[in-house]
Write a protein that binds this DNA or RNA. Structure first.
Lengths: 342, 342
DNA sequence: TACATAATTGAAAGCGCTTTGGGTGCCATT
DNA sequence: AATGGCACCCAAAGCGCTTTCAATTATGTA
């Protein structure tokens, strides 16, 4: 069933039926009713491809999903997507996900943009001096970046959390508790948030004249396993750190196991603060020793970004171009006063 | 830049350029080279919407993502998607993800199909007597189901793992180790895999004349937190179970914490076998007590389903319509002989 | 040399929708 | 009676591609 058939069925022109369906005012209410009724009966749905070709609008936002045989999927990706989806479903938008080799992301993004399949783009996992940024700017298509790109000028639309502030505050708390030996379990070294978090730690330490030694920093994928390994390494250092900053609750999971296996007590021998993206599968408050965290819901960010993206496409009012969300520092039992020097 | 402009630029007709681009044989190799060269220089990309309108093919597979403000995202979803993507990227396919309220899935699926946006559909999280099945059958569009629908006739294309066999084998192992008091931590009660896994346990027990008591079964979301709660409940039963079957390594995480908190030793006081979807963030072999698991890589299933779907759309050879994958039972340290009766 | 055949290329007709630029009545105003 | 304004509706022109059918040129055969 297409428009033509439907209009013949009704004895109307395609024009009128189209207008009736799209809520144009110049059509008689009675006719509109008739059309709507016929749609219900026939189950007619406009062909999206045709609609898109005619209007140029697709009703969809595009994103590229890095993927390759060895490439690890990411819990955070799913949770963020859920947030995007939650908002998208309210506006009858959908996503076009283009899987791409991580090395090919810039090209994939361009293909996606030029394909005419999407109205707007979304990118995440920003890196320092991210090469996608100049490309996006040249594109004349709305986009929003999740995160920022360290080192690049801040003239693009983004939503980010205050990673530096979060880890600065967390470090300060540990300093106030008397800790002097710190370690940082961070995400991969090129990622923007990892850079900023590290800077937060460093500048808080600097205020007390302390430095973060290179062997007290790990940059890894944020998995349980890497958390375990990184913590084991830290615990074997001659000057064992007593205060750990950790970029993810998933990674903290492994880290805590390492602490337990070493016969140490979390919150007493070792204090740990992790960043919590509020993943539904992992609640820091119900860890056996509840976790002190810096918190910001990834999902909420997804909702907000979808709002801005869809709003821009629909030209529904102006949106702030740049948002920086504060995180909450929530103190639980995994942090405590520094142990007496052994 | 569109086809018309490109063809004018080259002094050729749209027809020829189109044919050159799409690999038709009746175009001179020299001209084809010229066209390809021009494409490189101008960065021309065909408009997908137009292509789709003309051919009816979209180069995309559709799936609906259940989502709502309260709805939990799922690690497994991301991992599976990674598998789909890994294959899709090889064929220049993409996904159209339609977010939908979980109550509205059937309708969302139909909308997606009729929209003309996709060539094939994929559905997962199957339930017993799943209402999406009759709908899909009526649709005359290729689809593959991940999982099966308990109670419905097996006349649809699916890929599933042998959930019943997996849990049957796991239960038998525990029986052989002398266990007699069992508990099952399962997924939500309406889900197909949960039904089959339960049946596997029940039938293995039945062979020894044992039954699975109602208070030894939990049906919950498969999160860390729910795992903790469920295990706590089991441990307080008057006849405490010594053998636990668990539907997910994520859930096992919480369960193990509950065991530790109760001062019990995993693999001695309590034996536990979990199903392992091979999530990169959680490796059962590196748990503090390595986990005995039934294993089947979710990601591999994603790859395979994408193969079948894309293959069908491209009419590339016949694919088996129904596949049932065996799982591996991998014995590690979380299982041991039943403790002496207290 | 004449004619069939193959190799290339083009013109034009769609694909299903939106939207521009008219109509056609009908009523109130002069 | 003539005019203008409204309310409704329609024909047809695109949107950018593919594909059918026809035309043109090159190649081979008798």
């Amino acid at each position: 069933m297409n428009l033509k058939q439907l209009s013949e069925l009704l004895g109307l022109s395609q024009t009128t039926v189209s207008r009736a369906l799209n809520g144009y005012p110049e059509v008689n209410e009675a006719t509109r009713e008739r059309v709507l009724q016929a749609v219900k009966e026939t189950g007619y749905r406009p062909n999206k491809a045709a609609q898109r070709l005619a209007t140029g609008k697709a009703g969809s936002i595009g994103l590229v999903m890095p993927t390759a045989p060895g490439h690890q999927s990411d819990v955070h990706f799913g949770e963020f997507l859920a947030g995007l989806g939650e908002e998208a479903v309210r506006h009858d938008f959908h996503f076009v996900i283009m899987p791409a080799d991580p090395d090919d992301e810039v090209a994939a993004l361009r293909r996606l943009a030029i394909s005419g399949n999407v109205d707007a783009l979304f990118v995440a996992y920003m890196r320092g001096h991210d090469p996608r940024l100049p490309m996006l700017k040249s594109l004349s298509m709305p986009y929003v970046v999740h995160g920022r790109s360290f080192g690049a000028e801040l003239d693009y639309p983004y939503l980010d959390i205050d990673n530096e502030g979060a880890f600065y505050d967390a470090t300060r708390l540990l300093l106030q508790l008397g800790h002097t030996r710190f370690a940082l379990m961070n995400g991969q070294v090129h990622l923007d948030f990892a850079i900023r978090r590290k800077n937060g730690v460093i500048s808080a330490l600097a205020e007390r004249g302390l430095v973060l030694e290179e062997d007290c920093i790990s940059h890894t994928l944020m998995t349980d396993e890497q958390g375990l390994l990184a913590m084991e390494r830290f615990l074997q250092l001659p000057q064992r750190p007593t205060a750990i900053l950790c970029s993810s609750t998933v990674m903290a999971l492994g880290a805590i196991r390492a602490v337990n296996q070493a016969g140490l007590r979390l919150g007493e021998d070792i204090s740990l603060i992790a960043h919590d993206d509020v993943l539904p599968l992992l609640k820091p408050e119900s860890f056996s020793v509840p976790l002190t965290t810096t918190r910001s819901a990834l999902r909420a960010a997804g909702v907000r970004i979808a709002q801005r993206l869809i709003g821009t496409v629909k030209q529904a009012g102006p949106f702030p171009d740049q948002e920086l969300w504060k995180t909450e520092l929530i103190v639980r039992a995994s942090t405590g006063p520094a142990p007496q020097q052994p």
